[in-house]
Amino acid sequence: MIFTNDGKSFSNGQTVCSALKEFLEKNKDSFERSLIPDLSHIDNRAENINGIDISEVTYQGNGKYQLDYSYDWFVYRGCSDMDEYDESEESVMFSMDEKGNIEFDTSHFEERDTIEEF
Rank of each mutant, 00 (worst) to 15 (best):
1 M>E: 08
1 M>R: 03
2 I>V: 13
3 F>C: 12
3 F>G: 10
3 F>N: 07
3 F>L: 12
5 N>C: 09
6 D>P: 03
8 K>C: 06
8 K>A: 11
10 F>K: 01
11 S>A: 12
13 G>V: 08
14 Q>V: 12
14 Q>M: 09
16 V>A: 00
16 V>T: 04
17 C>I: 10
17 C>K: 09
17 C>S: 11
17 C>N: 10
18 S>V: 14
20 L>W: 03
21 K>P: 13
21 K>I: 10
22 E>P: 09
23 F>P: 01
23 F>W: 13
23 F>A: 02
25 E>A: 13
28 K>R: 14
29 D>T: 10
30 S>W: 03
30 S>R: 05
31 F>K: 03
32 E>I: 07
32 E>R: 06
34 S>Y: 08
34 S>L: 09
34 S>M: 09
35 L>V: 00
35 L>P: 00
36 I>V: 02
37 P>K: 02
37 P>F: 05
38 D>R: 07
38 D>K: 10
38 D>P: 03
40 S>L: 13
42 I>W: 01
43 D>S: 15
44 N>H: 13
45 R>Q: 14
46 A>V: 00
46 A>D: 00
47 E>Q: 13
48 N>E: 05
48 N>I: 02
49 I>A: 12
49 I>V: 15
49 I>G: 08
50 N>R: 15
50 N>V: 14
51 G>A: 10
53 D>Y: 09
55 S>Q: 14
55 S>D: 14
57 V>I: 15
58 T>M: 11
58 T>F: 05
60 Q>M: 15
60 Q>F: 12
61 G>M: 12
61 G>V: 13
61 G>R: 09
62 N>V: 10
62 N>C: 10
62 N>H: 15
62 N>E: 15
63 G>S: 03
65 Y>D: 09
66 Q>H: 11
66 Q>C: 12
67 L>A: 14
70 S>N: 11
70 S>D: 11
71 Y>P: 02
71 Y>G: 04
72 D>A: 08
72 D>L: 02
72 D>N: 08
73 W>S: 03
74 F>S: 09
76 Y>T: 03
77 R>A: 11
78 G>C: 10
79 C>L: 12
81 D>C: 06
85 Y>A: 10
86 D>Q: 03
86 D>E: 06
87 E>N: 07
87 E>K: 07
87 E>R: 06
88 S>V: 05
88 S>I: 05
90 E>L: 00
92 V>N: 07
92 V>C: 06
92 V>M: 04
93 M>R: 09
93 M>Y: 07
94 F>I: 04
94 F>W: 08
95 S>V: 01
96 M>W: 00
97 D>C: 01
99 K>G: 07
100 G>Q: 05
101 N>A: 13
101 N>W: 04
103 E>Q: 06
103 E>V: 02
104 F>A: 01
104 F>C: 02
104 F>S: 02
105 D>A: 01
106 T>G: 00
107 S>N: 04
107 S>M: 01
108 H>M: 02
108 H>Y: 03
109 F>L: 08
110 E>R: 08
111 E>G: 14
113 D>W: 04
113 D>Y: 07
114 T>N: 12
116 E>D: 14
116 E>A: 07
118 F>E: 07
